[in-house]
């Protein structure tokens, strides 16, 4: 049978090519200055178009266009498991100085929910870049005018108030609300939370299915301008700057001592070389200070929040502890 020879031929060639290709990853000396010698890959652990993807692509664009880094920078999407698939991929790139990734609070939350083997401790934090904050909105004709009114009613009759957000329980939109509500003295185990992943949260508040929409500040601006919803509180420490958002009261000024930051920054694989960490830290600092990136921040409504590797790590550890205790109280930690 002649055609079976084809099959064997295919196998032989494949195996030969495979055998002849011991991949040689050169380890760079850890002493002195380090500069990249081959293209850098930035992983967005999500599909095209989301927040992580946008941040990664914009950073790569400015790095290249402003000549901050000479090597090619490619953005690669590794979607799945809310980030878990991408993290598992990076975890396999131990010590590489050419594989970075972008992340935000889910890298702390998702491991605590038992949905990822890897958390922030497994990676090398390089630099945090930007911050965003949570906003809690209700329909414009709702009876509550501030967070305290709302939380008062929640304490009295928790079953009558529904909170809606895009993520599943234990993830960001849920936790940011819980964190503020808990500080206000609400029994967090009685909060009714519905997840609508198709972005229907706003719709549900507008048509009265749900009462409170837990989301990001940027998502509320246009609806507030149009008088459809009102924002009862935001999770930043101080008032935000900018048209409309400067009118949003913080939880702090309403006497609730709690904040929540949706930070976003870059990480490297486990055990990244110190010289490389230093290199990237500096480059991200330059990026953060550049006019081009400032323009991008403004376009997307992001706040500047640079942290270097060391303070970033300390910040993450603190975040983890805080959220861990919240999840413990909810009985959701795994």
């Amino acid at each position: 049978m002649k055609r079976w020879i084809t099959l064997i031929g295919f196998l032989v060639i494949i195996l030969t090519v495979t055998a002849c290709s011991g991949k040689d990853e050169k380890a760079t000396g850890s002493s002195g200055d380090w500069t990249p010698e081959k293209p850098i890959e930035i992983i967005a652990p999500a599909g095209a178009g989301g927040g992580w993807d946008t941040t990664a692509r914009m950073a790569a664009k400015v790095f290249t266009e402003e000549g901050l880094i000479d090597q090619d920078i490619g953005v690669v999407n590794k979607p799945g498991g809310g980030g878990a698939v991408g993290w598992a991929y990076i975890a396999g790139k131990q010590k590489s100085s050419y594989n970075l990734f972008v992340s935000s609070p889910p890298i702390v939350l998702i491991p605590l929910n038992g949905q990822s083997e890897y958390g922030h401790e497994d990676f090398t934090p390089l630099a945090n870049m930007i911050a965003d904050y949570a906003a809690f909105a209700v329909s414009a004709d709702a009876k509550w005018d501030n967070l305290n009114d709302l939380f008062e009613d929640m304490k009295k009759d928790p079953a009558s108030i529904t909170v809606v957000g895009a993520s599943s329980p234990g993830s960001m939109d849920h936790i940011q609300f819980i964190q503020i509500a808990k500080a206000a003295g609400v029994d967090v185990t009685k909060i009714k939370y519905v997840s609508d992943q198709e972005g229907g949260g706003l719709t549900q508040v507008l048509n009265g299915s749900a009462d409170v929409y837990s989301t990001g500040v940027a998502e509320t601006v246009e609806q507030v301008k149009a008088g459809k919803i009102k924002v009862l509180g935001v999770s930043s420490e101080e008032r935000l700057e900018g048209e409309v958002i400067e009118d949003f009261p913080t939880a702090n000024e309403q006497g609730i001592d709690a904040t929540f930051v949706n930070w976003r920054g870059f990480f490297g694989p486990p055990d990244m070389d110190d010289a490389a960490v230093k290199y990237y830290e500096e480059k991200f600092k330059e990026l953060s200070d550049s006019q081009a990136f400032a323009d991008i921040r403004e376009q997307y409504g992001w706040d500047e929040m640079y942290m270097d590797s060391k303070s970033y790590k300390a910040f993450l550890d603190e975040q983890k502890e805080e959220i861990q205790s919240l999840l413990d109280e909810l009985g959701l930690s795994k």
Partner: peptide
């Protein structure tokens, strides 16, 4: 089927 299997398995490597 085996061809495809091999194709998939080696896709990322080769």
């Amino acid at each position: 089927f085996l061809f495809i299997l091999l194709y998939i398995t080696l896709l990322e490597f080769l």
